[in-house]
């Protein structure tokens, strides 16, 4: 026997279940009057720096069916690569940008959508720059613990090639699962990021 460390254990995760929207986006599921608006609906609060973009996508299960009961959250840096978080000591991020978005997906199609700005590059621990990316977190019925992944940008080939995470992925054929191609819609740059929970094109998920 030895002394005990006295550390606590993290609370075990449990699925968000089929009604996660009641708690996280109640106005979306017609529970009105409790909160004035659903959190994470607006990422841009005013005159924001950088290029305005839209991120869309769906989450597919192993049969190729899109989930309609998922909740997707994103977290990203502002256009200058600063996070609107007191934990980022490098500078003050754009005060008109929250960095965090939450989408319950479209009721009929399951498509999530974020109107945001293209993030700047942020450093890795060794100081090397990472490629621009968005951190993505997915919960839903049937998902026992929230899934972390990242979206990278299809028009950032040079930065992606030197990104410390992308470049260390052993199975190169899986890298494209993290890269969203750039398209356009109503003159707005749109990045489509479909997430596949299973199958030959299973998205790379992270243990971070």
């Amino acid at each position: 026997m030895a002394q005990t460390l006295g550390h606590l254990k993290e609370s075990a995760s449990q699925t968000a279940g089929p009604y996660v929207h009641i708690g996280c986006t109640p106005n979306y599921c017609e529970i009105e009057g409790v909160f004035p608006e659903d959190l994470g609906t607006r990422m841009i609060l005013g005159d924001v720096k950088g290029e305005r973009i839209r991120i869309v996508g769906r989450v597919f299960d192993g049969t190729g069916t899109p989930l309609k009961d998922a909740l997707v959250e994103i977290w990203q840096a502002d256009a200058d690569g600063l996070y609107p978080s007191p934990q980022d000591k490098r500078g003050t991020a754009d005060t008109n940008f929250t960095g965090w978005g939450r989408s319950p997906g479209d009721m009929q199609t399951g498509e999530f959508r974020f109107d945001t700005v293209k993030p700047g590059r942020v450093p890795a621990k060794n100081g090397a720059l990472q490629a621009p990316h968005v951190t993505v977190w997915i919960v839903a019925r049937g998902i026992n613990i929230g899934l972390h992944t990242r979206m990278y940008f299809g028009d950032e080939d040079a930065a992606n090639a030197e990104d410390p995470i992308l470049s260390r992925i052993e199975h190169r054929s899986r890298v494209p699962t993290l890269i969203a191609p750039r398209t356009a819609e109503d003159g707005m740059p749109v990045y489509r990021f479909d997430i596949r929970l299973q199958g030959p094109d299973e998205t790379i998920f992270f243990d971070i």
Partner: peptide, 16 residues
């Protein structure tokens, strides 16, 4: 049908 089957990719936390 909603469980990833491949190993998760582990890496040290970055500021993200």
């Amino acid at each position: 049908t909603r469980s990833p089957q491949r190993a998760l990719l582990s890496f040290d936390n970055s500021i993200s």
